[in-house]
């Protein structure tokens, strides 16, 4: 474990916590008998969260952590896997099933057909992988899928008029975690012999590059202290 990877995992954990906080806010808001002003805004505007991206991430974790009970690496590793699995599936459940949270989900805007991402990633994983075994192909599939999983969310943000802070921070942290992982891979490449994993590195690089324009608008909105807005 190195500082870049730890920072990356903590950033990823933070993104999940921000999303859970947002869902909690929506839940507690609507619970009130009289909607406070913030609640009113929250309930009126869509949450800006893409259910499609959340479903893709649940699939990413389900296919990446197949070895959670067969290969024990460390307590930290197992706990983090359980957190990511548990949070991603519960977030999908909340947005799909929770009587209050689902109201803040704007399915008319979140129209990205994520099936068009799943199939090519699966085909690519069947062709380009490090070992043609069930677990390895699904693990590779999870890397390719994670690289593009953010697309429905980024497209939804372009369609969302006012992106609220928590949603912006969520996407930022999700992009930053993989950027930190790239530093981790560089560090491990120079410190560990034979540490070469092109598939992981290229997928991680593509994933981070997809956030490039978001990062640009996110930092300029911070610098100019204006509301985050993505051009359509």
């Amino acid at each position: 474990m190195n500082i870049f990877r730890l920072a990356g995992d903590m950033t990823h954990l933070m993104s999940v916590l921000v999303l859970l906080l947002k869902i909690h806010t929506i839940k507690s808001c609507a619970g009130k008998s009289y909607p406070c002003s913030l609640c009113f805004i929250l309930l009126e505007s869509s949450s800006g969260i893409s259910l499609k991206t959340q479903e893709l991430y649940a699939l990413v974790f389900a296919t990446r952590y197949l070895d959670i009970f067969t290969d024990f690496i460390s307590v930290y590793n197992t706990i983090m896997k359980l957190i990511f699995l548990g949070s991603s599936f519960s977030i999908v459940w909340y947005i799909r099933r929770h009587k209050i949270v689902r109201r803040s989900y704007d399915k008319d805007q979140d129209t990205f057909r994520h099936f068009f991402l799943v199939l090519p990633c699966l085909l690519l994983a069947l062709i380009i992988n490090e070992k043609f075994t069930f677990k390895e192909v699904l693990w590779t599939f999870s890397l390719y899928l994670e690289a593009v999983a953010i697309l429905p969310q980024l497209i939804l943000l372009q369609r969302t008029r006012n992106i609220d802070n928590l949603t912006g921070q969520y996407v930022f942290l999700l992009g930053a975690y993989r950027a930190l992982y790239i530093l981790n891979w560089i560090y491990r490449y120079f410190t560990e012999p034979h540490y070469v994993h092109w598939i992981t590195w290229i997928s991680g690089l593509v994933q981070t590059l997809l956030y490039a324009d978001f990062f640009y608008y996110y930092f300029s909105s911070l610098k100019n202290n204006v509301k985050l807005k993505l051009p359509a």
């Binding site: 995992d9 070895d67 690496i73 590793n77 983090m80 992982y181 992981t200």
Partner: peptide
Amino acid sequence: DEEQVMKDEL
């Protein structure tokens, strides 16, 4: 082994 090392990341 090699396999083990590769999968130590989340």
